[in-house]
Design a protein around this nucleic acid. Structure first.
Length: 430
RNA sequence: GCCGGGGUAGGGUAGGUGGUUAUCCUACGGGACUGUGGAUCCCGCGACUCGGGUUCGAAUCUCGGCCCCGGCCCCA
């Protein structure tokens, strides 16, 4: 019986792995350029880490289990909670802001579909402490920088601010769970459902109208004035709006102005307080969102000090999808450059010796291990797009030489074994 | 959890109104060719997603599972 891959999981072969690696290292490099350090947390955590953050209902979508000691554990469904946990344990007393990034796989028990898998990868960061429009702007700029560096086109970064909405809800006496519920519906973008709910809970007409107008506000920085005119009666909401305005100014200073202000972005969880942003790429089907982030106070939820943090994560697989859809070619040169081929099988030990000499000199080298015929080796080297084949034969060997064959031009050159590494390095241009 | 479309060698496919040994391409292994690759020819390898049902007989019809694709719900 054939054993199948678990549902919603994937195998990555050589080429795909190379592409992923290439994107990963680009992201890594950018994040490090902005002063972030890499961290890594366990693949599984205590289940309660995630239920504390997102509620008991989240269990349905988590791979969780009991280990042999009866501990309730879960494969991590996301990385911000583990990072917050780690921060509290290890980093609370380090100078702020703490800037860290991570890359790792997460697991969710969901119905697989385009851009959605049961094991998927997130590449993200957290900037803990030092909340300011500047911090938020830097984080957003970095996200944009990554995508530009990768050559991704037509991405849209939407920026919103939950403080505006929450303050208006507060002023209308919608608080606590009801407020989170309203935010959840705004997040869904269902205007009718929102109107009905506001009707049901008897919100005054002014607030209702204001909310419905606000969540439709979308555009460049010029809409700030329109929003201001709308909410001029609310002092707290105006403070939040001012925060947003500061963020936009900082963003321009960081050199990124191609954003969309979108006050319809929301989150149904109460530790999201201020700035939120999402990145979309159209043409990816239902899963067009490739990244999401914002500012939140999660540390306190886990019993740490009251510190706000800003973070975001790329849905790594979706970034890959988007790049592929745009036919963005990603460098996938074969890594092996040289193949050492014994002309007769009785010279294989000499071939091993030469191959090893090249490897010790940093040249990616393959060697025939199974006694293939020369013809087959050359054919094999050809399909693998290998640059040079070192032919090890008795005639040359008598003089201490081998023949180096250029697989593209077909030219051959006799080289002494002594100089073989140097000669190949030179030919390969390294 | 729900709705729709699918599943034939490693990859891509033909066959579908039930009827010998399931088509073709490609890849792979061997040979023609004992120190020289990409071409050609020959040979070989290799599949009906799984299980039940109808039937003398199922890749084909039927039911269910599994998996894939698209969408809904959800999306921390």
């Amino acid at each position: 019986m054939e054993i199948q891959r678990p549902r919603g999981t994937r195998d990555f072969l050589f080429n795909e792995m190379k592409e992923r690696k290439c994107v990963e290292s680009t992201m890594r490099q950018i994040f490090e350029t902005y002063g972030y350090g890499e961290i890594k947390t366990p693949i599984f955590e205590e289940l309660s880490l995630f239920t504390t953050k997102s509620g008991e209902g989240i269990k349905d979508q988590i791979y969780h289990f009991q280990d042999k000691g009866g501990r309730d554990l879960a494969l991590r469904p996301e990385l911000t909670a583990p990072v917050a946990r780690m921060y509290i344990k290890e980093l609370q007393k380090t100078p702020k802001p703490v800037k860290m990034y991570y890359f790792g796989s997460c697991f969710r028990y969901e119905r697989p579909q385009a851009g959605r898998f049961r094991q998927f990868w997130q590449f993200g960061c957290e900037l803990i402490g030092g909340k300011s429009p500047g911090s938020e702007a830097e984080v957003i700029s970095m996200a944009a920088h990554c995508l530009e560096e990768l050559g991704l086109k037509d991405f849209e970064i939407h920026i919103g601010n939950l403080g505006i909405l929450r303050n208006i809800l507060n002023d209308a006496n919608i608080e606590g769970d009801m407020q989170d519920q309203v935010m959840g519906i705004i997040d869904k973008g269902d205007v009718n459902e929102l109107a009905n709910l506001l009707e049901d809970i008897e919100v005054d007409d002014n607030s209702k109208e204001l909310l419905l107008k606000l969540i439709g506000m979308k555009g460049n920085s010029s809409i700030i004035k329109d929003v201001e005119a709308l909410i001029n009666c609310s002092e707290h909401a105006c403070n939040a709006l001012f925060e947003l305005e500061e963020l936009l100014k900082s963003l321009e200073a960081f050199g990124f102005s191609d954003y969309v202000v979108n006050l319809g972005i929301a989150r149904g969880l109460d530790y999201y307080s201020g700035t939120v942003f999402e990145i979309y790429v159209h043409g990816l089907g239902a899963q067009k969102q490739i990244s999401g982030g914002g500012t939140y106070n999660l540390i306190e939820v886990f019993g740490g000090e009251n510190v706000e943090s800003t973070g975001f994560a790329f849905g790594f697989d979706r970034v890959m999808d988007a790049l592929k859809k745009q036919e963005k070619s990603i460098e996938t040169k074969p890594s092996v450059k040289v193949f050492v081929a014994p002309i007769k099988n009785d010279l294989k030990l000499k071939a091993f010796e030469i191959a090893q000499k090249l490897r010790k000199n940093g040249i990616s080298t393959d060697v025939d291990l199974v006694g293939k015929k020369l013809k087959k080796i050359l054919s094999y080297a050809d399909t693998l797009k290998i640059d040079y084949v070192v032919l090890v034969g008795a005639r040359d060997l008598e003089e201490g030489n081998v023949t180096v064959k250029n697989m593209i031009s077909g030219e051959q050159e006799i080289v002494s074994i002594e100089n073989i590494a140097e000669s190949l390095k030179h030919k390969l241009g390294t």
